[in-house]
Design a protein around this nucleic acid. Structure first.
Length: 967
RNA sequence: GCAGGGGUUGCCGAGCCUGGUCAAAGGCGCAGGCUUCAGGAGCCUGUCGCGUAGGCGUUCGUGGGUUCAAAUCCCACCCCCUGCACCA
């Protein structure tokens, strides 16, 4: 481990000193520009964060070895709520968080107080994260680093927003959000107890008439208004008579406050018990029917208006509640409700659904065995009925002009018509309520007025985004559909808040641009960030004209230089550097950002930049789990990156987070995986050490079969690894480079152990060098060290990625080696089955006429399926074979099936190489076989007159399948 | 509901894209052997069933289908995981 640490530091220093990762424009070389979503510095990094960054770094290193001038920069996202919220929690002395920082991440306790200031927190973790990135060996050009609160960056964001505004993509309006009345803040998932996302739903309030009063029944299913049999109120709840925007409403007391948050003027006239209205009649505004107001305890006064219309035909709650009160009619006498009257109320069916009876609600209630209106199973019952009716339901004839429509259509239409006629309105409610804020208050919905939006709903903008997507490479390709979907579905996105760090909206300074909106085109800023620092360009010099010139080529450098005091040379340099590195070649992030950041990036690029500068590729990856479990504070299974690095080393960590999963899947980290990786690297060290001990290197020995086999296999592995890297299938690449190649290498070493040939040193060296090069993007520190040990020139990071040499692919050697492998396996199998302790193993290789026959059969079978008769007829045309007609008949009977079943590819190979010199092959492997089997090995040709063959086995020999005799 | 991922031999996990060389890599666990004073560790062998000759049988979520041939391709179904916004 100590050695590992030293090696890491040694190479990190050397890279830095040689500035090999600082990329400047170089017109003689193709460029490749890679960026990763910049981190929020609101806590230190853990192993999970390492995946995306390591992947991008591996890609950068690979592309560098493919000859590209690669730029990989990094910056820090101070904007918005993440930093703010964390600092706030710390200020509130959140125990969990403090424990986390101190115990898990080892933040010094005395630092904590300082970190309650958001900016101080961001600065602190910024340092921490940057150090981690250096220690894990990312090949980042640090000269371009910036933060999103740098005043120069703010100017860039202001420019961007001016562009969006000019293009007509910014608009203003209102929208509902989850809201904590105590805190006076919007609440998202991480602001709630148990991290519950408040689901916002729009209820239709249908205005049932009750004299001069309105009973606004809240429903998610307005189309069922035709099946209403009664109204439910909770007799034990408190209701209020109120004036809402000039209308007289009766609603639950809890609803009063909610309506005010939804921008309604509410005046309370009188409070009363729900009981008071039971037994009275109201009128359905859709049908003008008179119906009764009945009591139901399932009605929750805290949900929406607390007034519910009853549709027992299609709503399980209503169905059960109705059955319940019919059963206790006596209790209802005091409301003047007789048993006869109650019994006359029956479910009405207004929707037809396949596979259900007239009354779907009753079907489901009976199926689930629900007896009481307070049974929690009613939630599931409701969902089931709703699901089927929504997707498969049709409106019945008793629904007037809506008859025949699907439920999907009718739902919207009924709602719109009722609203248009003044018979309904809407209100928002939290569907999964109660959702509680961390402060303990139950959340409500607030409608925000005058909010600023970026209008991703614009059709012509969507068209541009689609166009950009079409031209982009998406990795993994499976997720392309996801982007298409998101582009279509995106609409107005609130782009500013009133709190947090960040850039103020240039035309309305109360608002601060939130973090998903100030991070969409910043990749362009990397191309000029180093100049801004180097020439100390001030924010006030960075006018919109400057950015127009650099990024869009508008205006005249000299004139702008005059106005801003930035020299025209510098302006031109920035313009050139931007044009050199743009467009962005590859964008990396975890795939949870597809529905927002990544798609926003596409949109914003198309809004601002010309088509040739739109991004070219997006790569996303899954998360990291910890021994199969989700990483989370509450599980206490988070390993901070710096701790991981200290414990396992940079290269093992890099390999671990990439080797266990392809892009789409979650990668599973565990200490044992990291250890395996370290062992693997250590073994490579040993192998290199052993191999370089012996300096003499003879270049002329003749290569044996096994040597040629190893070299041939190497070409295969190079090809496979390269193909995998092109698709960023890093797991496959690592498997090929580190495991499959290694397996072959081990076999090779086992095979040549007994041989004296000096060729093996040279071959081993060739293999190792290639392996080290291919491993270098993944384990750069180890590979630099090994490369140096092997007398490689310069940095391995700057060498050219190996290329498979087709001329070294040796089908004959591979067939020959396969023969040995299979023969060994067969022999061991026989030994196992017979439990013989072998003293002597005799092999008989197939006679040449068998080979001739075999190849002929293969050739013939490549065109069509062969049968024995035709095959024999053709074979005996050959006089040499004709004399053996009887043997041939016997032999062909054995091989016809096998030949017909053989894959085309293998047939090609065999036909191409004509025959394998089995006797020679076996001779070369004789020592090896002897060692493996631990018995004397004797090799004969099948028709060898002097052969030792007591059981007459020789004649069983087949090409590629020598006969075996063991005693 | 929509979209995506997944279900493989005791466990984890490759293979599936590009059908045959797949009883199916590798690791863990388990059993035996070697090494060690011992502990730890390392190395070797075995690990679906049957089998005294390289064989046979059964297996890759379930049920169908295509094919000479299916873990792999197609269809249907069941189960698990993830995302669906104003929250980064």
């Amino acid at each position: 481990m100590e050695v590992l640490k030293q090696v890491e530091e040694k190479w990190q220093k050397r890279w830095e000193k040689a500035k090999i990762f600082e990329a400047n424009p170089d017109p003689s070389k193709p460029k490749f520009f890679i960026t990763v979503a910049y981190p929020y510095p609101n806590s230190p990094q853990h192993i999970g964060h390492a995946r995306t960054y390591t992947l991008a770094d591996v890609y950068a290193r690979y592309m560098r070895m493919r000859g590209y001038n690669v730029l990989l920069p990094m910056a820090f996202h101070y904007t918005g709520t993440p930093v703010l919220a964390m600092a706030k929690r710390l200020a509130e002395k959140d125990h969990e968080l403090i424990n986390d920082f101190v115990k898990v991440y080892k933040v010094p306790k005395e630092k904590l107080k300082e970190l309650t200031d958001p900016l101080a927190m961001a600065r602190y973790f910024h340092e921490e994260i940057r150090e981690g990135m250096k220690k894990i060996g990312y090949s980042i050009d640090w000269r371009r680093e910036f933060t999103t609160v740098d005043p120069q960056y703010s100017r860039f964001i202001e420019w961007q927003f001016h562009k969006l505004l000019q293009a007509g993509y910014i608009k203003r309006g209102s929208h509902p959000v989850g809201w904590c009345p105590t805190d006076g803040n919007p609440v998202g998932q991480h602001d709630t107890q148990g991290d519950v996302e408040p689901e916002i739903g729009e209820f239709t309030l249908i205005k049932f008439r009750f004299g001069e009063w309105v009973l606004p029944t809240a429903t998610l299913r307005p189309e069922t208004v035709f099946g209403v049999t009664n109204i439910w109120l909770n007799p034990k709840a408190k209701y209020a008579k109120v004036i809402v925007n000039g209308e007289k409403w009766i609603i639950s007391r809890e609803c009063v406050e909610k309506l005010t948050y939804q921008n309604r003027k509410v005046k309370v006239l009188e409070n009363f018990e729900g009981e008071e209205l039971i037994g009275k009649q109201a009128e359905n505004p859709a049908t003008n029917e008179k119906i009764y107001i009945l009591p139901a305890e399932f009605v929750d006064p805290q949900n929406a208006t607390g007034v519910v219309m009853s549709v027992p035909g299609h709503a399980p709650y209503d169905y059960v509640a109705l059955e319940n009160i019919k059963g206790e009619a006596a209790k209802l006498m005091r409301y003047g409700l007789t048993s006869d009257l109650l019994n006359s109320i029956n479910a009405v069916s207004v929707i037809e659904v396949p596979h259900y009876s007239e009354i779907p609600a009753s079907d489901v209630v009976k199926k689930m065995g629900i007896k009481n209106q307070t049974d929690p199973k009613l939630e599931d019952a409701t969902k089931e009925v709703y699901r089927h009716e929504f997707h498969n339901g049709k409106m019945r004839n008793n629904t007037g002009k809506y008859a025949g429509l699907t439920v999907i259509e009718a739902k919207e239409k009924v709602k719109q018509d009722l609203i248009a006629a003044g018979k309904a309105t809407t209100m928002y409610e939290i569907l999964n309520r109660p959702v509680k804020c961390r402060c303990g208050t139950e959340c409500v919905i607030k409608i925000f007025e005058d909010q600023w939006f970026i209008d991703y709903g614009k059709q012509e903008w969507k068209a541009l985004a689609h166009k950009c997507l079409e031209k982009m490479r998406i990795l993994p390709e499976e997720l392309r559909a996801e982007y298409t979907y998101v582009i279509d579905w995106l609409h107005e996105k609130a782009c500013a808040r009133k709190s947090g760090l960040g850039t103020r909206l240039p035309w309305d300074k109360e608002w601060i641009i939130e973090s998903l909106s100030d991070s969409t085109i910043y990749m362009a800023y990397y191309t000029i960030a180093r100049h801004i620092k180097e020439y100390e360009i001030q924010p006030n010099q960075l006018t919109d004209e400057v950015f127009d010139y650099i990024f869009l080529g508008n205006g005249n450098a000299e004139a702008i230089a005059e106005k801003t005091g930035i020299s025209s040379d510098v302006l031109k340099k920035m313009r050139q550097e931007f044009l050199y590195f743009y467009p962005l070649d590859s964008r990396h992030s975890a795939h949870e950002l597809i529905p927002n950041h990544l798609t926003f990036m596409i949109f914003n690029h198309t809004a601002i930049f010309p088509e040739n500068l739109w991004p070219r590729q997006i790569v996303t990856n899954g998360h990291v789990t910890m021994e199969g479990a989700k990483m989370s504070k509450s599980f206490g299974n988070i390993i901070p990156l710096r701790e991981g690095l200290a414990k396992f080393g940079a290269d093992p960590i890099r390999l671990s987070v990439l080797a266990t999963a392809e892009l789409l899947q979650d990668a599973d980290f565990s200490p044992s995986v990291a250890k395996t990786m370290r062992d693997k690297l250590e073994r490579l060290y040993e192998l290199v050490a052993e191999n370089t001990k012996d300096k003499k290197e003879n270049g002329k020995e003749e290569l044996t079969l096994i040597d040629r086999w190893m070299i041939s296999r190497l070409q295969e592995h190079i090809k496979k690894a390269t193909e995998a890297m092109e698709k960023l299938a890093v797991r496959k690449a690592i498997h090929t480079i580190l495991f499959e190649l290694d397996n072959d290498l081990q076999w090779y070493q086992k095979r040549v152990k007994t041989s004296e040939k000096a060729a093996k040193t040279r071959i081993l060296r060739e293999i190792l060098k290639t392996q080290i090069q291919m491993l270098a993007p993944f384990a750069p520190h180890t590979c630099e060290e090994l490369w140096e040990k092997m007398d490689g020139k310069g940095f391995v990071s700057l060498t050219i990625w190996p290329k498979a040499d087709e001329t070294k692919v040796d089908a004959k050697a591979e067939e020959g080696e396969m023969l040995i492998m299979n023969l060994l396996e067969d022999t061991l199998n026989i030994i196992k089955a017979t439990r013989i302790k072998p003293r002597k193993v005799v092999y008989y290789t197939a006679a040449s006429w068998k080979w001739k026959t075999y190849i002929k059969a293969l050739e013939k079978s490549m065109e069509e399926k062969i049968n024995q008769g035709d095959l024999i007829k053709e074979l005996i045309k050959d006089p040499e074979l004709k004399v053996k007609a009887k043997d041939i008949a016997e032999f062909t009977a054995k091989i016809v099936d096998e030949v017909n079943r053989m894959p085309q590819e293998r047939k090609h190979k065999l036909v191409q190489i004509k025959f394998v010199d089995e006797k020679q092959t076996l001779k070369e492997a004789k020592e090896f076989l002897k060692n493996e089997i631990n018995a004397e090995i004797i090799i004969h040709e099948e028709e060898d007159a002097k052969r030792y063959d007591p059981k007459n086995r020789a004649k069983a020999a087949k090409p590629c399948r020598p006969a075996i005799y063991i005693e």
